[in-house]
Amino acid sequence: MLKILKYSFYDLMRSRWSYVYFGFYLLLGFVLLFLNNDVSKAVITLMNIIIVLTPLIGTIFGVMYYYNSKEFTELLLAQPIQRSHIIRGQYVGVSLSLTLSLVLGLGIPFVLYGLFMSAAIFDFGLLLVVGAFLNFIFVALSYNIALSTENKIKGFGYAILMWLMLAVIYDGLFMISLLLFNEYPLDTFSLAATMFNPIDLSRILILLQLDISALLGYTGAVFKKFFGTSFGMLSSLLVLVLWVWLPLLRMNWKLKKKDF
């Protein structure tokens, strides 16, 4: 698996798209810091971008890479390697190269602007960790879709739909149900609904590290209690791990029956 990972990673690290992605984040980092010159303020703006863009890019890269390397995958399948190792190697390769683009692209400008002397270093670190998680989660989800869909166009469609679902529609339904049931205590419901969407979970996880967390206390004691403690932080991270792990399980299960 490590060998496949290595070559997929090499392949992607040399791809034009990795550079475009890396360049985009680099530019974004510099522009943000140039515009307000305040590391901690830039972190908030960055959050908005990371929460939306990382999943989208992860999804598109995931499906694209799977379909584009289909023939090569077949060549690899004829080698004495387990098929799950091949796919998992590719998966880790894609996720890792995307994460590297993210971390370096944003890290370089922030380090140059004196991140290490800023109080925002923890927030920024968390932002990158969450960004990395989102990469791994959404590449895994898109690989699942690609593995289950022979047709490339359909696969792309489903993947984009999945992103749209988690990034926008889910929150819309969430909001509607909050409004519909607003006579009932909604604390626990909101908490659960947040856990079931990795984008929402990441957003809340970052928000809670910012001053604004006090504002969330406004919504109710359960939320404050849960997210205000290190227990909440740890369990949120654990749920993010689950969000990587479950799609990987399904991937394995699917691979056992999959015809190439």
Partner: peptide, 21 residues
């Protein structure tokens, strides 16, 4: 306006859906 009606919807602060809304 929505947060006034249902404070819990504050959970959706800074989400893409809210921006679109």
């Amino acid at each position: 306006y929505l947060v006034n009606k249902t404070p819990e919807s504050l959970v959706l602060l800074r989400s893409l859906f809210v921006d679109i809304l």
